[in-house]
Design a protein around this nucleic acid. Structure first.
Lengths: 137, 137
DNA sequence: ATAAAACCTATAAAAAAAGTAGGGTAAGTA
DNA sequence: TACTTACCCTACTTTTTTTATAGGTTTTAT
């Protein structure tokens, strides 16, 4: 399951994507709309900004806005950013690889082999879904 | 990522599946082979037994053994049993459904709609991989 | 009988996730 | 220039989940 962090990020991105114009939206507007703690959401939006997904404007009338096309914002990207690895085991992760302590030999480990396949299929799914799909209709 | 519980379960099932005969294997043999705490593994094997995947024999010479064909033991089944939902959000879960508190209307929620698709695709992947695949070669 | 091993319930420790606090810094407005 | 607004940053606390432990009970083989 996704963490609340990632879920909140999806809601925030959806909210920003639904706006006609890409004018800055204040944290408070989003936090109130979904009942998310202001400060918690602040951290999340900041991460999205650092990742180059959102832009921000300071001062009066400031806030956050999308700087990427919804189509360019894939689920895999958001999940990786806020939740970490897509793979089910560390030894099958592309971006967060770690060898498994309990595993004697990765080369002959059937779990490893199957989990690589699982990761590839999951990635195909998650790369293929983006913010535009969420906004549709 | 899978919990250690699920990972250990996979190692244990693999271990049992590799045996030529389906004679009882003691917890200790498995826990030592993979460096898993004896007691922790005990709980896991017990769950697998209650789920009808393993059989057991008490007393001297006792232990656990597979009572299902490896082909019948899918990843989805093991993950659901030990880790819970496959879906990424509670409102998209088949077996562990819960409505999302921050969601005003599930019927019009784009996140919900997309996450149902994601779940379906993930399930296809995980239903389709089983212990036999892990044991192969 | 005795030893070996699964079975069961409850609890504790550790780790991760979720949320809070408070101030710093930049930008806009008058 | 002064004031306000809202982003930016760091650290900390609380809560929840995961991981592990403890101690006894029951069953079976020898």
């Amino acid at each position: 399951m996704l963490s609340k962090k990632t879920k909140y990020a999806l809601h925030a991105l959806t909210h920003l994507g639904q706006k006609e114009e890409r004018t800055p939206v204040q944290i408070q507007e989003i936090s109130e709309a979904y009942g998310i703690s202001h400060k918690f959401l602040e951290n999340i939006l900041l991460e999205l900004k650092k990742a180059g997904i959102l832009g921000s404007k300071k001062g009066k009338g400031g806030g956050y806005y999308l700087i990427k096309e919804p189509k360019e914002i894939s689920l895999s990207k958001i999940i990786r950013l806020l939740d970490g690895p897509i793979a089910l085991v560390p030894c099958a992760s592309l971006n967060y690889y770690e060898s498994c302590v309990e595993c004697q030999d990765e080369a002959t480990c059937g779990i490893h082999r199957v989990m690589i396949k699982v990761r590839d299929e999951m990635l195909k799914t998650l790369d293929n879904k983006n913010l535009e799909d969420i906004l549709k209709e």
